[in-house]
Simulated scan of single mutants.
Amino acid sequence: MSRPSLNDLAAFAAVANHQSFRRAADIMGVSRSALSHTIIGLEGKLDVRLFNRTTRSVSLTHAGARLLARLGPVLHDLDQALDTLSEERGAPSGALRINANKSGARILLADVVPRFLDLYPHVELDLMSEGRLVDIVEQGFNAGVRLLEAVPKDMVAVKFGGDVRFIAVAAPSYLDGRARPNTPDDLNAHCCIRQRLPSGKRYRWEFSKRGAEVAIDVPGNLTLDDNDLLVQAAADGRGIAYVPEHFARPLLAARQLVTVLDDWCPPMPGLALYYPRSRHVPSPLRAFIDLLREVDKQR
């Protein structure tokens, strides 16, 4: 039996952990066919089948599960050892993968990412923006960025960017000749621009005032899935939209939009970067968190 290479074993662990050749190939930056050939070669070297494969699924054989159980801690220790060498050189290096929602990605790109890349040119930063909340461990990310209330309880959360506030906005032309809503229930008499969440569900507008909390599935004949589009539709007079304040701020300043129900729209905890509590924190992520905290103090 010829000895497999470290790359062979890392490829095996990636496929095993993600139970998908496609996901593992994307994370490793190789083609699916190349990864498949690597695994076939590894099985040939070991003279044992490691995976059960069908057109729809990938699962470990008994031998594959035994190998992963022994190999996982070894690869983890190796990552830590290599990370220690990176620290000895005095500068983090390697890959850093962060999954963020659109708001979080915008803030990071404006305030943190440029400085981080200047300080740590040997780090390859992969910042992916998507609306749905993903399992960052399963998808191979080092960290995620979401509203604090959406961060899984078993994660370490680092707040940044301050509180956020969702506001109800409309064009003056839409409100002209209509009674302004004074309570959330008054929205039932208006045309609202509804929002489709990444999960596919329609968002119920959430309001609170003096301890009273209300969630409404508002009426309306237009549903969108992007805050920028919601703001633009409201400015075009299509109805009332409910969006994070920073998305509407430019059009509010230009008086193309005005707010309604202000006293029902208090601030709430904002964004947080989060990462697994039980895993070793690689030096690029530690450096990114340190810089994030430094920039946040300067805001």
Rank of each mutant, 00 (worst) to 15 (best):
E130N: 08
L133M: 08
L252F: 11
H280P: 02
A25W: 03
I167V: 15
R66G: 02
G177V: 12
D225K: 03
A241E: 09
D225G: 13
A235R: 13
S5L: 07
L257R: 05
G94W: 04
N142R: 01
A150I: 06
R56I: 03
I216N: 02
V151T: 08
S2K: 09
F288L: 12
V112W: 14
I39Q: 04
R178E: 11
A81C: 06
G237N: 08
Q298N: 03
G220Q: 01
S283F: 07
S173N: 07
N142D: 13
R277D: 06
I216M: 12
Q80P: 01
D262A: 15
R196P: 04
V48Q: 13
N221K: 04
R249K: 14
K297Q: 14
L96H: 00
E124P: 01
P282C: 10
W264Q: 05
Q232K: 09
K159V: 10
A179C: 11
I136T: 08
S2I: 11
P172Q: 13
R286G: 02
R115S: 02
S173R: 07
D154A: 12
G29C: 09
I289M: 05
L222K: 07
V58A: 12
P92V: 14
R210L: 12
L261A: 02
G104F: 04
I167L: 03
S2A: 10
K297H: 11
V145W: 06
A69C: 06
R22W: 09
D79G: 14
A254H: 04
S93P: 00
G237R: 09
H76D: 15
I39V: 09
R178Q: 08
K201S: 10
P244C: 15
A235W: 12
G211N: 10
D226E: 15
P184A: 09
A65Y: 06
G94C: 08
